[in-house]
Design a binder for these strands. Sequence first.
DNA 1: AGACTAACCTGAAAGC
DNA 2: TGCTTTCAGGTTAGTC
Length: 288
Amino acid sequence: MPELPEVEVTRRRISKLLIGRKISGVVTTKPSYFFLTSPRTLKQRLLGRTVRELERHGKYILARLDDDSTLLLHLGMTGQLFGEGARSARLRSKAARSAKSTDGFSPDEHTHLQLEFTDGKPRVFFRDVRKFGKILLISAGASDPRLDKLGIDALLAEGEHLFSAARSRSIPIKTLLLDQAVIAGIGNIYADEALFLARVSPERAAKRVDAAACAALVAAAQQVMRRSIETGGSSISDYVNPDGADGGYQNERRVYGREDEPCPRCGTPIRRTVIAGRSSHFCPSCQS
DNA sequence: AGACTAACCTGAAAGC
DNA sequence: TGCTTTCAGGTTAGTC
């Protein structure tokens, strides 16, 4: 469920557990569409490698390796990247929970990647129940269309990036906010929150959003995402920080998931509708 | 080109 | 209680 803030929090926390350590073992689940690079190839090419740097573009994490290849990770909807020793009820495997175990996490059938290191623990785990996440190893000098088509990272964006894409487009402005080729990193929660703060209806046609409103939207998105990073990311259903602590931003949501609750600004009940196949929440009174 | 829909998966929660 | 339906923070391939 990670959007940009959750991915950034993950990147920061996992950096310390990854950078500079030499990989001595790779354990995976069986091949599936989760693995854009096959488990067999991953094992071959990750063994002996060291992560030099961890970067992020939009919702992708990019691990730069010492042979100039890049391990691309996407958390999808339920992906969790964390180090051995993380403690969280949500992280515990079914087996551990049913045994009323108070121990930390142990790898289960959803733990698709386990990295072991020459210096011993902690191992690093990539777990993803729904398998919407992705792992891809990009060779040195190679490119990947997934990355190539990404727009500017949401934290670096300016109103103009949105406005130039919005011109003459009749699609709802929310659809454009979610388009990773325009601005990368905004997901369903923060799109709704940004639209609320900027007082723009998610249903308004993009071409009816002027330059000032586009600037307000981008600024609002950055405001809520920065705040979310500070508080450790949202954790509405099962997002878990790599160190096991749950994020706190879900308590600051103004409209997302608050259908029928009073608008924090004017008291009108928040309405829920579906835009581009995603549930959308907004105040019908103060957003237009 | 633009814009919907369906699909990829699993599990929690709500509905009956 | 237990079975069925709905919903979920994402992305992409296919179709009109």
